[in-house]
Structures are given as structure tokens and as C-alpha cells.
């Protein structure tokens, strides 16, 4: 049984030489993982992050961008390990959403 992320040797189209300047939020995701995973904090192991990404399933794995997969998995691990709660995350997300909408008016 081959898992979805384990793609070495599968058929695929040409390698398009794509790149983009990473957006501030993408760098923030990278920074979150670096900080939480650093030897001082050890709040997440890179293999925990990877397991969470692999478990997003084939649909999400291909539909989400790289850092969308990262933040999805990172957040799940933080919740699973009790570092943040679903309730406080839900409230904070709503707070950010409203703040950004207000700021854009």
C-alpha cells in the first residue's frame, strides 16, 4: 500500500520551473514551526508535523498549498498536545477576522 504523499516514481507532467516570493503569512508559518520545534521548546517534532500533513488525506494534500498544509497540521498538533485549546483558537480567529475586516473598511 502506497500512501498518497509517498510519490517517488509515479507518473507526472513536466517540472514547471515555478517559484514565488514567499508571502509574510507563509514565513510566519515557517517561523512558528521553527520556534515551537526548537531544542529549547520542543513543543513539536518535525515528524509530528509531517504525520499531520500526511493524514490530511489525498484531497486536502493536493488542494492546499505547502504552508496551508503546514499551518493545518501545526495547529492540530498544538491542540492535540494541549498547548492551545479549540475554544480559545475559535475566539481568537474570530477576533482576528473582525479586526482585519474593520481595518479594511
Amino acid at each position: 500500500m502506497r500512501r498518497h504523499h509517498d510519490m517517488g516514481g509515479l507518473d507526472a507532467g513536466p517540472v514547471e520551473p515555478t517559484e514565488h516570493d514567499y508571502l509574510p503569512w507563509e514565513k510566519k508559518v515557517d517561523a512558528l514551526v521553527r520556534l515551537a520545534g526548537d531544542p529549547k521548546r520542543k513543543m513539536i517534532a518535525i515528524d509530528e508535523l509531517r504525520r499531520g500533513i500526511e493524514n490530511l488525506g489525498p484531497g486536502a494534500y493536493d488542494e492546499l498549498s505547502y504552508y496551508e498544509r503546514w499551518i493545518s497540521s501545526f495547529t492540530n498538533v498544538m491542540i492535540e498536545k494541549g498547548h492551545i485549546s479549540i475554544d480559545e483558537l475559535g475566539r481568537k480567529m474570530e477576533e482576528v477576522r473582525v479586526r482585519w475586516q474593520e481595518a479594511a473598511k
Binding site: R3, D6, G8, G9, I46, D47, E48, R50, R51, E54
Partner: peptide, 30 residues
């Protein structure tokens, strides 16, 4: 979570170098 890719399972090769020692990522993942 397994770090041994599918395409080499069951295949034969030759050790070229001992490169590191590391905890088992299959356990670290949990």
C-alpha cells in the same frame, strides 16, 4: 508516519556510508 519510501521496499542495494544516528521518526511522529 514512515520515512522509508515505497519504491525501495523489497529492493536490494549496497550500503555506501553510515551517515548518522537518529531517534526513530515513526515514534517521534506520535
Amino acid at each position: 508516519h514512515v520515512r522509508t519510501p515505497y519504491y525501495i521496499r523489497g529492493k536490494e542495494g549496497v550500503v555506501s556510508r553510515l551517515i548518522a544516528e537518529h531517534p526513530n521518526p515513526e515514534e517521534l511522529a506520535y
